[in-house]
């Protein structure tokens, strides 16, 4: 990564990360096909809903014939972490027009957010519309193309779990977490590790009490509040 914020730089910096979503997008298509979705439904889910891991949950809820309101609420809760990511990202675009803000928000994903948070460590805490919009659109079209390809492969492959494809998403979070830790100079490694350990305990205990659909948002709020508290306690 460097301090350039052009579309061309975004292309170069985003391409290595697309292999993360190609794997997951293909897995999504294969699982969709094996669950009985048509190609047009698989593609539309990726193009219109565009909700990453929540799309896997949509499939399982559709299979359970869950009522419309409960599917929407679950997807909203799982994706409500996007509210925090959008809040975090929006501060870099205050001077841009409303249309550009809406465009950035519409296509923001976990991955482009994580990439942005790594990027600001190299750019003196700034982002540009060209850079993030390019990165977002690469993710969007890659995800849709991969979903459709997965739907096609799904006609032939029976056991995607056996090929380890389901782990692609988790491996990507591990890689993004590590890169974020070593590049974030605002927070010391000691504080970061303390917060991560706290998050582990919250997840373990939270799984007993809290439905998994709202666990991530609850843990995120508590984990960040804990981080702020220990930062103040140590200062």
């Amino acid at each position: 990564m460097n301090n350039q914020l052009s579309a061309r730089t975004a292309l170069r910096e985003t391409l290595p990360t697309v292999f993360g979503y190609v794997g997951i997008g293909i897995a999504f298509g294969i699982i969709g096909k094996s669950s009985g979705l048509k190609d047009i439904e698989i593609l539309s889910m990726s193009l219109i809903t565009y909700a990453g891991s929540a799309q896997f949950i949509m499939i399982s809820l559709l299979l359970n014939r869950a009522p419309l309101a409960s599917v929407i609420l679950t997807v909203f809760l799982i994706n409500s972490r996007m509210i925090l990511m959008s809040m975090n990202t929006s501060r870099f675009f205050k001077r841009e027009s409303m249309v550009k803000n809406i465009l950035i928000g519409t296509f923001l994903t976990d991955e482009s957010f994580a990439l942005s948070m790594n990027k600001i460590n190299y750019t003196n805490d700034s982002l540009s519309f060209e850079w993030l919009n390019t990165s977002n659109l690469i993710a969007y079209f890659t995800w849709s193309a991969a979903s459709l390809a997965g739907g096609f492969f799904g006609n032939f492959i029976r056991d995607s779990q056996k090929l380890g494809l389901g782990f692609a998403l988790v491996a990507m979070f591990i890689g993004l977490l590590y890169l974020q830790m070593i590049n974030d100079h605002a927070l010391s490694i000691k504080i970061q590790l303390t917060v991560i350990l706290f998050v582990f305990c919250l997840i373990y205990l939270g799984l007993v009490l809290i439905p998994s659909s709202i666990l991530i948002i609850c843990v995120t709020i508590l984990g960040c509040a804990f981080g702020v508290a220990i930062e103040h306690a140590l200062a």
């Binding site: 975090n88 974020q180 917060v195 997840i203 666990l215």
Partner: peptide, 17 residues
């Protein structure tokens, strides 16, 4: 608070899995 969001979300999605 927002400074902590990336590492907390990434680690919680990993640990949940």
């Amino acid at each position: 608070f927002l400074n902590f969001v990336p590492i907390v979300i990434m680690s919680s999605l990993w640990f949940e899995s």
